[in-house]
């Protein structure tokens, strides 16, 4: 039982990170109907920027943890957003109205480019990072197994909840959110009514990248090691989460993220750790067979 609860806590933490990345997939898909293949690599860029800024702050002598945390968060969000904007500008905007496969292929090219760019710029070695936030609570001590809930896990989950709530408000209440929903329904009509479609799409990419930056920072702090390849697997899993929850739906992305995190954690805990990535892919295939529009999504109606 204790083991089970411990895995539940770990799974929810991992799921929060996947959920934040999945929101980026689902928002972009909602607005332009395409998968942003480079999103996993945007997440990786976010993790790397966080690492570099942490190291720089450490060298500059900033030792007060909350301050360092805040600076890293802001810088990572800004820099990663620039990356997200650039990806849209270079690989998506010139291709509106091109044939169906074109944006997919250019996004894959972008993903390959980003991976190799980071590898060349920062080296192929795995980058370690000493734990910054340690400690936590321990429950049910005394028996053969005790449950720990670390500060890091609390921060990750609560930050995710706050960001999710903020985003739900942003989409539902602000003019930007309204413009996004309008573009999602009918881009031409939205443009006719005075919505700047290009700008709205750019901002959607920027928002996705900002969330991916937060996810990247939390991944770095939680696991303590990153390399240029992390975006690949994390990207596929977050995409699986978005599909499982219903692509195009924000709460769906979060739910899907949690489910994928839990499935992966329990799979590694009770079956085999080697095949944990296989579990996520099998879920993806199963979801596509039995419920292609996801748990919370609406069936897509094909218009001629």
């Amino acid at each position: 039982m204790e083991y089970f609860i411990q895995q539940l806590i770990n799974g929810v933490t991992l799921g929060s990170i996947y959920g934040l990345i999945a929101i980026g997939y689902t928002m972009v898909y909602g607005i332009i109907g395409m998968i942003n293949f480079a999103h996993g690599d945007i997440f990786m860029v976010g993790a790397f920027v966080s690492l570099i800024i942490f190291v720089a702050l450490g060298l500059a002598g900033v030792t007060f943890v909350p301050l360092a945390f805040a600076i890293v968060l802001i810088v990572a969000i800004v820099i990663t957003s620039v990356y997200g904007w650039t990806v849209e500008r270079l690989a998506y905007r010139p291709l509106r109205g091109s044939f169906r496969l074109a944006p997919l292929i250019s996004a894959i090219g972008m993903s390959i480019f980003l991976q190799n760019f980071v590898q060349l710029a920062q080296g192929a070695r795995v980058k370690p990072m000493p734990p910054m936030i340690t400690g936590g609570f321990t429950f049910l001590e005394g028996s053969d197994f005790s449950i720990t809930l670390s500060w890091m896990q609390i921060i990750i989950v609560s930050l995710t909840v706050v960001l999710m709530a903020g985003f739900a408000l942003l989409i539902a209440r602000t003019p930007l959110g309204r413009a996004q929903r309008a573009c999602e329904q009918d881009r031409t009509m939205a443009a006719l009514l005075g919505v700047n479609v290009d700008r709205t799409i750019s901002l959607t990419f920027v928002m996705g990248a900002a969330l991916a930056a937060v996810a990247g920072m939390m991944f770095l702090l939680y696991y303590g090691v990153i390399d240029f390849y992390i975006g690949f697997l994390a990207g596929i899993k977050a995409f699986t989460a978005a599909v499982l929850g219903g692509i195009g739906s924000l709460p769906g992305a979060m739910l899907g993220g949690l489910l994928i995190g839990l499935i992966e954690t329990f799979w590694s805990a009770y079956f085999t750790i080697e095949y944990k990535d296989v579990a996520a892919f099998s879920i993806l295939v199963l979801a596509l067979i039995f419920r292609p529009y996801g748990l919370l999504g609406k069936p897509e109606i094909e218009k001629v």
Binding site: L90, S98, S106, G109, F113, L120
Partner: peptide, 15 residues
């Protein structure tokens, strides 16, 4: 630089 070039080329060709 091989894969870096391949990636950039894929984007450029599509555009």
């Amino acid at each position: 630089y091989r894969m870096l070039t391949f990636g950039a080329l894929m984007v450029a060709i599509m555009v």
